[in-house]
Computed example of a mutant assay.
Amino acid sequence: MSKFLFIIQGEGRGHLTQAISLAQLLRANDHEVVAGLVGIGKGRQLPSFFYDSFPADIHSFYSPHLIMGKRGISFSKTITHHLFRIPLYVKSLQAIHAHVQHYQPDVIVNFYDVLGGLYALTYRPAVPIVAVGHHYLFLRNDFIFPAQRSLDHWLLKINTRLTAVRAQKLLALSFYPTAIPTHHRIVTVPPLLRGAVKALTPTQEPFFLVYVTYAAMSKTVIEWHLQHPEVNLHCFWDQPDHRFDETLTFHKVDGAKFLEMMARCTALVTTAGFESVCEAMYLGKPALMVPAHYEQACNALDAQRAGAGIAAEEFDLSLLLDYLPNHVPAQDHFQEWCAQATPLFLAHLEEVVLERRVLEAISSE
Rank of each mutant, 00 (worst) to 15 (best):
F345I: 00
R71E: 13
L259K: 09
Y112D: 09
Y323P: 04
L22R: 01
A126N: 12
H31W: 01
I129V: 15
L46D: 08
I86R: 09
G284V: 06
R161K: 14
P105L: 10
P64G: 08
L137V: 00
L22I: 14
G133C: 02
A300C: 08
H135C: 11
P190A: 07
G307F: 02
T160E: 07
T201F: 04
F4D: 01
K257S: 08
E260Y: 09
L139C: 03
T160M: 03
F4N: 07
G284T: 08
D316L: 07
L349T: 00
Y62P: 04
C298G: 06
V277Y: 04
G116P: 03
A297K: 12
A126M: 08
V34F: 00
L137S: 13
L151N: 07
H234D: 10
V290N: 04
L170C: 06
L288R: 10
L139H: 08
F84G: 12
H293G: 08
Y136S: 00
L200T: 03
F61N: 04
A199F: 05
S218N: 11
D152S: 14
Q148K: 14
L26M: 02
P47D: 04
L192R: 03
E260Q: 15
L354N: 11
E246R: 14
S60C: 15
T201Y: 05
Q204K: 14
Q304F: 01
D52R: 14
H31E: 13
R44F: 12
L359N: 13
R85W: 12
H99Q: 15
R243S: 09
F54Y: 15
T182E: 15
M262W: 06
A56Y: 05
S21Q: 09
G117F: 00
A280M: 07
I158P: 01
F75L: 15
A287N: 09
K70P: 11
Q94W: 13
S2M: 06
D142W: 11
N326S: 14
I73Q: 05
R124E: 12
Y211R: 10
F138V: 05
D245K: 11
M281V: 06
S60K: 10
F345V: 00
F4T: 05
W237F: 07
E230R: 11
A28L: 10
P177Q: 10
L83R: 14
P291D: 06
I108L: 15
S60A: 12
V114P: 05
V130H: 00
A19E: 01
M262I: 05
K198H: 06
I158N: 04
F138R: 02
S363P: 00
E205C: 04
F54M: 13
W237Y: 07
E314R: 13
Q304D: 04
L151H: 03
S218C: 11
Y282T: 07
H99K: 15
I20C: 09
I129M: 15
I158K: 13
I96F: 03
W224N: 09
A35P: 06
A172F: 00
S364W: 06
V107P: 03
L320V: 01
I108A: 06
A339C: 09
I186K: 01
V352E: 02
P177E: 11
D152I: 07
A292E: 13
Y62W: 13
V212M: 08
Q24E: 15
C278Y: 02
I108Q: 08
A126Y: 04
T188F: 00
T78I: 05
G39F: 05
D302G: 00
A256S: 11
L209Q: 10
D238A: 12
N29D: 13
V127H: 02
